[in-house]
Structures are given as C-alpha cells and as structure tokens.
Design a protein around this nucleic acid. Structure first.
Lengths: 221, 221
DNA sequence: AATCTCAGAACTAAAATAGAACATAACATT
DNA sequence: AATGTTATGTTCTATTTTAGTTCTGAGATT
C-alpha cells in the first residue's frame, strides 16, 4: 500500500502530532527524511492523501491530520480488543462520521469553490443515510419559511436526480448554485424559494444540474 | 493540524479554563503570547474555531470553550492510554456525546415523563457546550417562525435562569412545559411563541420555572 | 527508452504582526 | 427610559515572515 518513503513520512507526521500537537511544516519533513528539497515532500503528501492516510485542510499551513495508519498496526488485534478500560472500536463500528463542509450556499450566488474542503463537520450517523454526503453553510434568507435560517448547516446527499418537491442543491448554467425546492413542470424545472420576497426561477431542464438533495440540518444557538 | 502559535494559544485557553473556569479575554491572550496587538489573537481564534478545537458564542465576551485537544495534552491521563497506534481511536471516541431524549415537547401540553429516558441521541460535541444537556422532540407549530418545525429535535442545556430573548423550556405551574421565547417584563414573564396563530402567555414569575435553554437543533429530511 | 525520484529555483499563498478605529455588551447612573 | 462608562471583541490596512506549489532538468531504476 505504501512505499517506504511514504511510510516513513506518515510515521514522522504521526509522531510529531502525538508529541507536540503541531503539524510539521514541509521544511521540517524534508529535514526529517533527509531530502534536500521539499518538492519531494509535496509528492509524498499528495500520495498519502490519495490513499486516505492523511487529511489536510486546503490552503492552510501545518494543517495535517493522520486518519489511519498502515494495516500492520491494526490487523493483529483488530477484532474487538479490550485493552484497559477502553473497548476499541473498529473503523466499521465508528459511531460518527466526518463530512466535508464545502463552504456557503446562498440564494443567487455561487457556492464558493465547491471543490475546496475547508473543514469537516462531524455528524451522528443517524442524521444521514447511506450515500455520499457533504455539508454547506446556509447564507441568506431565501428558505426561511421552510425553517432553514441564515447560518444553519445543511447536510446534502450527493445525487443527480430528485423527486418533485424535494429541496435540492441546484446548479444553474454551471455557475450558480442555490438551495431550493424542486418542481418539475413538463420540460421546465422550477426552483422555488420559501420566502415571499424571492422569486421562483423557471428554467429549461438542460440549464439545471442537481448536485444533491437536502438530508439534514443542524443549528447552534 | 495546528501551527505552533495556534497550539500555544489553545493550551493557554485550556489551562485558564481548567484553573479559573473563566475564559481569558483577548487582551489577556495577547499578553500571554507576547503580542502587541489583539488582532493577531482574533486570527488565531478564528483558525482554532475553523479547525474544530474551540467553540465560541457569538457576540459574547469571554465565551470560549475548548472542544478537543491535540493528543499531547492527554498525557496526564496516560495510565489509561493504550500504547502505539491505538491512541488515535481514543480521540474518535471522545468526539461524540450521547444525550438523553426526554420525549416530546409541545405548545400547551406537558413534556411527557421528563425523567424517563426513552433513548439517546448522539450529537457532535461542536453542537453543544459544556454543561448538562438533554434533547426533546418538537411537536406542534408554535415556533415555526423561528425555524423550529414539528418533528425537529432540539438540544436543551439544563439551567434555571435565562436571559431575555432566549428560547427556553419553561414549566408553568409545575405541570405544563413549552418551548418559547422568554421575555421579562418587570414582575411578569412573557412566554412568546413564534407563530401568529398562538398567543403570548403573561405569567407572574413564580408560576414559571425555566428548565433549560435552547442550545441546538437537528432535523432530518 | 520509459518511468520514477529528487534538487533547485521561482512563484504564490497564508500566517503573523502591528496600530488604530470601530462595534457591542454589561453595568452603573442619571 | 436614556445616558455614560468600561471592558471586550471586531475590522481594517499595511508589512514581514513563513509555508506551500509548480516546473525544469538531472540522475537513478525498471
């Protein structure tokens, strides 16, 4: 699964996080592995990320997190271990899920950088079903009458199609995403806000792409 | 995950909370880190919040709370810690909380069996602060205009007092609990619904007991 | 020869710092 | 109820330092 260098780097990152709580910088990692340039580190980090061993916040310095370690460390005792007072849970038994928060969604303005994962929200598994999910922070008042307020975090299940009446994330003309109720009217699609002050958009189906359906909502007071 | 400054600040906040129970102010943090301006603290606080290490109440002074710590700082409890790669799992276990679901709350009808714990809801720690919490299922339409719908699960922080304008669980004459906005008018207390079709109740303070304040909301679609 | 790995440098982006002005909350006083 | 005071938090602009990304070419490996 990992090349020797990748493995060494992963272990180094893990130790540093355990010992100091601070992510190493690219330069520090370069020194630790005895490389003379950090471009090599860049490649290794990318590889570790692709393989799901680490996670990083986009465009943030020293924002590494180890999410799993190579199998050797786990396989031996993987079943149902009780060590001391803790009963360890295997990955499959995880009782919570981290889903990516893809920025804000507002009426009439695009989601800023849908691909950038700024941070993660942890949600209880009871909030979401199967399938792939992401989260968005709601900005604006266009859905207040549906009980969706400015600042709420909505959980979206990725999907390409949705039923009439469902609340969806809809991308119009590939550049403007909104959270609206979906209505189908023959060849057209209606994107209906839940606020008297906003207008329903009527669009030919080929200008609208569904990016997911509303699956949950979380709000803090 | 953290930069050195972020880490130092987090540790300082944590120590202060442990020792005195009071959040440090921005000025105190500025001094603790040896900065000459608190705008830097502001940025660090934002970064810590973004990464899920702290939580803060909006527009409140000294309202910081540490949600999680990097592994280092758990060394105090090191006797419980499992060696090697399993440390990771401990943090995962800490990242969720089960709180009791005490039945339903409706406008005008009592909470059924407040002491009976039917089941638990798991919530991410970022949704709630410290303190004791419970959950209620909302029944009825009395708070729809505040974005609280029938069927939503509200998270309530147990407390006896609340500020004007907060949404609280109020017990009237020891037998009828409702979720309403609290207003104080001299000797009287107003329990104000968020729905034009419902009436505000005006009651002398001694007939009302606060049972908690609204801290969060979760909804499934 | 094709592929992989790395060094080095140039470039871009974020973090940290500072100082001041501004905004808000809580409390005390009129 | 209105006003003022103090403590506290937020925002802005500007500058410096630190960190991350990308690209080219050289050598090693397959």
């Amino acid at each position: 699964m990992l090349t020797p260098k990748q493995h060494d780097l992963l272990m180094f990152i893990h130790e540093r996080l355990e010992q100091s709580g601070v992510s190493p910088s690219f330069d520090e990692m370069k020194d630790a592995l005895g490389l003379r340039s950090k471009s090599g580190i860049h490649r290794l980090i990318t590889a570790l990320e692709e393989r799901g061993f680490i996670r990083r916040l986009a465009h943030r310095a020293r924002a590494l997190e180890v999410i799993k370690l190579p199998d050797v460390y786990n396989t031996k005792k993987a079943d149902n271990v009780i060590v001391g007072p803790f009963r360890l849970k295997r990955q499959e038994e995880r009782t919570e899920v981290d889903i990516p928060l893809h920025g804000k969604i507002a009426a009439g303005t695009p989601i800023e950088a849908l691909e950038d994962v700024d941070r993660f929200v942890s949600v209880p598994p009871s909030m979401i079903g199967k399938g792939s999910h992401y989260a968005l922070e709601v900005s604006g008042e266009s859905m207040v009458e549906a009980g969706i307020l400015d600042g709420d975090v909505v959980l979206i299940e990725r999907c390409e199609a949705a039923r009439d009446g469902e609340i969806v994330v809809a991308l119009v003309d590939d550049n403007e995403a909104t959270l609206k109720t979906l209505r189908k009217r023959g060849p057209d699609i209606l994107l209906e806000p839940s606020n008297r002050d906003y207008q329903t958009q009527v669009l030919p189906a080929d200008r609208v792409r569904i990016q997911g359906r509303l699956a949950g909502l979380m709000r803090r007071y």
